[in-house]
Design a protein around this nucleic acid. Sequence first.
DNA 1: CCCTATAATTGAACTGCGTTCATTGAAGTG
DNA 2: CACTTCAATGAACGCAGTTCAATTATAGGG
Lengths: 199, 199
Amino acid sequence: MATKTEIRRQELREKLIVIAERTIAQNGLSALRARDLAAEAGCAVGAIYNVFGDLTDLTLAVNARTFHRLGADVAEALADAPGDPVEQLVVMAQAYHHFAASNHLSWRALFDVERPAGEAAPDWYLAEMGQLFTYISDPLAVIFPDRAADEIALLTRALFSSVHGIVLLGLDEASAGVSTDNIDHMIALVLRQFTASPK
Amino acid sequence: MATKTEIRRQELREKLIVIAERTIAQNGLSALRARDLAAEAGCAVGAIYNVFGDLTDLTLAVNARTFHRLGADVAEALADAPGDPVEQLVVMAQAYHHFAASNHLSWRALFDVERPAGEAAPDWYLAEMGQLFTYISDPLAVIFPDRAADEIALLTRALFSSVHGIVLLGLDEASAGVSTDNIDHMIALVLRQFTASPK
DNA sequence: CCCTATAATTGAACTGCGTTCATTGAAGTG
DNA sequence: CACTTCAATGAACGCAGTTCAATTATAGGG
């Protein structure tokens, strides 16, 4: 069997992911170039294509790791959070914000990667997203005990999207003028106000 | 005085914007190619660069029009809306959603255009954005009469960002499974809940 | 009206990119 | 060791945006 080859490929694969991860984190997705990658990894450009279908596949591998780190950060924040479900939501949302701020270019790459139109998202993406959604829907179910599961699901998506929008536009320097503190304020404002008067 | 030349340039400029607008609307920003543009406009590729600095400049010209149409749609919805400020917010947000859904690729181009890092957004962008923000802050000031102007400004930005996030992720087919109706529901849910218990 | 200086237009050529594939070289087998 | 098979290589390809030397048009003065 091809053990020798398999091992070499696995090592190259890992090395490429690490290099790409660093490149994206430091200079953004647009700085990812096949020739630079090959030069730094000490391999031929063609070797990249023995291990990944194309550069988008490599980017997706990096994104899987980024998304996993993001999920871990949110989970850790939740673990350290008080028992109050509203506070749990605020703490998690701010953890999301802080991850995005501290890993801006890597976080952007999650959404900027070229996705073939009409193709489903990869499994790991859906799984990781589902985990995040669970973190949100659990406190929500406590806050709104009378709502049906499908309503909770809609609330969950709405709140996640809202926080994502606040972070996205807040970190976008083009529209400028939003400080980190203000972003945290906006998040807390929306979540507290949203969960204020359960009916 | 270069009248003949000026007129010709102005006509070419207009023609290129119209072609680019249609190309982006039909096939997305990534389908915008200098050679295709020149072929369709009946000019040399170099002529594009006599009239626009580069393709990004042309895209920005298209985006200015898209943003203006968006603003007009929201304004029209507001004009037809009832007097209740909460309903005004809902109607405007849903108008934003419907514009994004009906002009998906043009709307995406507003955010997907390559922006040189650390450079301020163009004036027309800030002006149009300011107008949208005014549409939101006016009803908010009625709903929360006791809040200071800077608090209203933060609320305005928070609500705009939230609605934007809901529309952005809702229209993104990769994360799939959100119908137009559900997006409208989420928008109404967030806005109504947010404005439910002024304290 | 023509001639010339100046300016605008042109499109072939340049650059930089992702990707491919004929060639070269290594690995495994009898 | 010979031979077959499969992997690695990097020069070459295709396709973009952009440039600039050569060409063509414009405008003003004789």
